[in-house]
Design a protein around this nucleic acid. Structure first.
Lengths: 198, 198
DNA sequence: TTAGATTCGGAACCGGAGTTCAGGTTCATT
DNA sequence: AATGAACCTGAACTCCGGTTCCGAATCTAA
């Protein structure tokens, strides 16, 4: 029946009309910024306005508010995964670990939506995110393991502890909390004994 | 003009009709339980039902949903302050500190509303709470100071660090997070050097 | 250039949750 | 026991924000 175009509908592909593809990006950008600043409390209308589009258009590209948020958080996760890959390439095990930790937290700092998603106040579309999350977890796991094997992290340090530390720091990003200070304290409790260095 | 009763209206006083006073408590109890379980997402109707009263009655006793929540969180704060006073009486500085930490977190664990209030996702009526909060802070401050002076806490430990630790642990109370493990790790990073004990 | 499909716009719609209010009911005083 | 004030009830109201929907605008293929 379809004699002309017969392209597959990859979720975010190129089979969109030029303007549609452009608008999709615009929406994503606008939403990213707003969600980052104020978390889930932003309204669809605001996003539309900021993007210079009508609300209807948002719904043409994303079925839901949830879907939109999920798309954005997924995006952030991709960034974080790639960041983890970079950290993985650092030779020194401790440096790799510390870098991962800082880069991870630094990218979470300006993104309220992302933080809320991880701190679990709300439950986004985990399904959509779980994939990315798993990818990240694998890399983090390997970096952690390397630091443990090298005797830089206390031997009983598990990957799940990375989450504990991380969530702890993020909880101190709002308001007056000084998460860097907090992280410093935590690192002290995590390092392997023996080596007493600054 | 008023020949009969001329009693002052102390906020939560005894100038209420017997049933009213009773109902007020019922409401507070019902709300406490529900807010604790599900945070701010509980609805006024639910609270009313659980209390076996009409919604209107809730509004007779509390102007707002916020006011109701604030009253409850305030209550929890009172409990915590008294708990702190108890910890203060412990002679050993470190034991006092550790006890404060554990008792504090243990009482936060089952109370989602309280945790959310402290983690700042939402802003309750701080005014109402600030008072209690300050009282608690004073006591905590003294306990911390004592532990530092006794050389059990790292010398640069400030009272604000108590908040960091505390918020960190609370962030790991939801879902699968193991806050006790997290606290253990944190304590390791907080203890004064020297003493290398298990 | 034109047709037709795709996309956009944004007022209207809708459901949910907090809040009100016009009676009925209960308590406390005389 | 009676009276009036204090209190309670819950259906109805209001507001708010996500979602829908269809005519208008835009793009692309022929």
């Amino acid at each position: 029946m379809a004699s002309t175009t017969l392209n597959v509908m990859t979720t975010r592909d190129h089979s969109l009309r030029a303007d549609a593809r452009r608008n999709r990006e615009t929406i994503l950008d606008a939403a990213s910024e707003l969600f980052a600043q104020r978390g889930d409390s932003v309204q669809m209308d605001e996003i539309a306005e900021r993007a210079g589009l009508g609300v209807g258009t948002l719904y043409r590209h994303f079925t839901d508010k949830r879907a939109l948020r999920a798309a954005i958080i997924g995006r952030r996760f991709e960034a974080i995964t790639s960041l983890a890959r970079t950290a993985e390439r650092i030779e020194d095990p401790w440096a790799a670990f510390e870098t991962l930790l800082y880069r991870y937290l630094e990218s979470a700092e300006p993104d309220a939506a992302f933080r809320f998603a991880l701190l679990g106040s709300q439950e986004p579309d985990w399904d959509v995110i779980d994939a990315e999350k798993t990818a990240f977890a694998a890399i983090a796991e390997s970096i952690v393991q390397r630091a443990v094997d090298a005797g830089r992290l206390r031997s009983d340090f598990r990957a799940s502890d990375f989450v504990l530390i991380t969530r702890g720091a993020m909880a101190n990003m709002a308001g007056a909390g000084d998460w860097r200070r907090h992280l410093t304290l935590q690192l002290e409790g995590i390092r392997a004994p023996e080596t007493t260095e600054e």
